[in-house]
């Protein structure tokens, strides 16, 4: 009888320990929000929120300080848009090809190779963008500057292809065979079936993949820090040097910024903007994916 009680106690203790590990992951989220919020609030004691969202200059490291986040957001938007212009079409076409056209043999050969692409550290892509892609593009666009949004964006796009391709492919493959068979039976070609039956049926899953791709591009750091430059500018010209939110955080972290100064706090304010942005994307993507999962149960 007594050993029963001990055993029950042990079971409960272990379950409690496992639960606290699971709760630790929630603590991480609170930790992130807490740290960002604390430093950001300190930041807004010295800088008005109005200036932060409306000023068109970002010069916290100069004598004449301006704290407008817009130029950094503009850089992030520009590089991410270029990345999505590359990764979106290529990723989607690859996904359709892999799920609707390719033979199992081709699929089994290509998918692991795309995984290799996804496994390469981002600093390597940064090297590639700065020292290979930029000189290559300069042969065609002589006015391209040494650091530019274009090659950083393109390389980031290549980096994101595997994410979009593999998540979209999962969504397409999950569409029931009966839908395809019905379409083919009434005389549609594979292309018509893919584009008008399978793709619409998988739209929420494909949408979720795209949003996750955007979120990755917005948060990507090393490629833009290495190849896009360090000039916060309100421009949509991809041939010039820009600075993204992430690249700014790297720039300040590399310098010896003393703890507690306004310069130190800018990276948390910038990080907070980044976190809010990607958080919104992630939740939206998660919600889309959950919704799509229930569709064919």
């Amino acid at each position: 009888m007594k050993s029963r009680t001990i055993q029950r106690f042990r079971e409960k203790t272990i379950e409690g320990a496992l639960l606290s590990s699971a709760l630790a992951t929630v603590l991480i989220t609170f930790g992130i929000i807490g740290v960002l919020l604390f430093e950001t609030l300190e930041f807004f004691r010295e800088v008005s929120l109005w200036e932060f969202v409306t000023s068109t200059q970002w010069t916290p490291l100069f004598q004449d300080k301006h704290f407008g986040i817009l130029p950094l957001l503009c850089g992030t938007f520009l590089t991410s848009a270029i990345a999505m212009a590359v990764a979106g079409p290529i990723g989607l076409v690859s996904a359709i090809y892999l799920s609707e056209y390719a033979s199992p043999r081709v699929r089994n050969a290509v998918k692991p190779a795309l995984e290799v692409l996804a496994a390469i550290p981002t600093v390597v892509f940064g090297y590639f963008a700065l020292l290979t892609v930029t000189p290559f593009l300069r042969k065609f666009i002589p006015e391209l500057s040494g650091f530019n949004a274009l090659s950083a964006g393109i390389v980031m796009g290549v980096m994101i292809i595997p994410i979009i391709a593999s998540l979209s492919e999962d969504a397409l493959t999950a569409v029931p065979m009966a839908l395809r068979e019905g379409s083919l039976a009434v005389g549609a070609t594979r292309l018509q079936t893919s584009l008008r039956v399978v793709l619409p049926a998988a739209l929420s899953g494909v949408g979720s993949a795209f949003i996750l791709g955007v979120s990755r591009a917005v948060g990507e750091t090393m490629v833009v820090a290495i190849a896009a430059g360090q000039q916060p500018k309100l421009t949509l010209n991809p041939l010039t040097s820009v600075e993204t939110v992430t690249a700014y955080i790297v720039q300040v972290s590399l310098g010896d910024t003393p703890y507690g100064t306004i310069e130190y706090r800018t990276i948390f304010a910038a990080g907070m903007s980044l976190f809010v942005l990607t958080f919104a994307f992630n939740i939206f993507s998660y919600w889309l994916r959950k919704k799509f999962r229930e569709e064919y149960d």
């Binding site: 979120s215 990755r216 948060g219 990507e220 790297v250 990080g271 980044l274 990607t278 994307f281 992630n282």
Partner: peptide
């Protein structure tokens, strides 16, 4: 959390 940028 899996999709939060690493710099965060």
């Amino acid at each position: 959390l899996a999709a939060v940028p690493s710099i965060i």
